[in-house]
């Protein structure tokens, strides 16, 4: 069974997921106050301005925190075995919820402070999900 997928119409996150089809990790920055906005929205969370610019991230960041899930009854995750859920701080200043992949054993190979780089998991729907592997 496939992972739960983002659902549309949902205009705030539509441009983000459109960009993932080209493996571009995007975020927003406010043109008036320069605040970095993420997750995507139509307004700036610092000043309320609706003048936001979309930017491409280099996809490199640091693990802020994580947990290794041993038990999830959802049928997409139940067969996976232990997997790491994490918040990653991108170098451009935004924090994303994601999975840490590309490690031999998530129980021992994921660390807070670890440098990671985006790795795309293509979905049947055509979008891709940004995940992160050790840089």
């Amino acid at each position: 069974m496939a992972r739960p997928q983002p659902r549309f119409p949902e205009p705030d996150t539509q441009p983000f997921y459109d960009a993932t089809k080209e493996h571009r990790l995007t975020y927003q920055q406010c043109n008036s106050c320069k605040n970095v906005v993420f997750y995507p929205r139509a307004h700036c969370t610092a000043c309320g301005s609706r003048d936001l610019a979309w930017k491409d991230s280099k996809g490199v960041g640091t693990v802020y925190t994580y947990s290794v899930v041993r038990l999830n009854r959802h049928p997409a995750f139940a067969p996976l075995g232990p997997y790491a859920v994490a918040y990653v701080d991108l170098d451009e200043g935004f924090r994303i919820l994601t999975n840490i992949v590309g490690v031999n054993d998530p129980l021992t190979d994921v660390k807070i402070g670890q440098r990671v780089k985006v790795q795309w998991e293509d979905q049947e729907s055509g979008i891709a999900l940004p995940m992160f592997a050790p840089a």
């Binding site: 983002p6 949902e10 997921y17 997750y39």
Partner: peptide, 18 residues
């Protein structure tokens, strides 16, 4: 659909993991 759900649900974060 909600923007926060769209950004979180694919990653299997259980309440306990949160």
């Amino acid at each position: 659909p909600s923007p926060l759900d769209n950004m979180q649900s694919p990653y299997g974060m259980t309440l306990i993991a949160n």
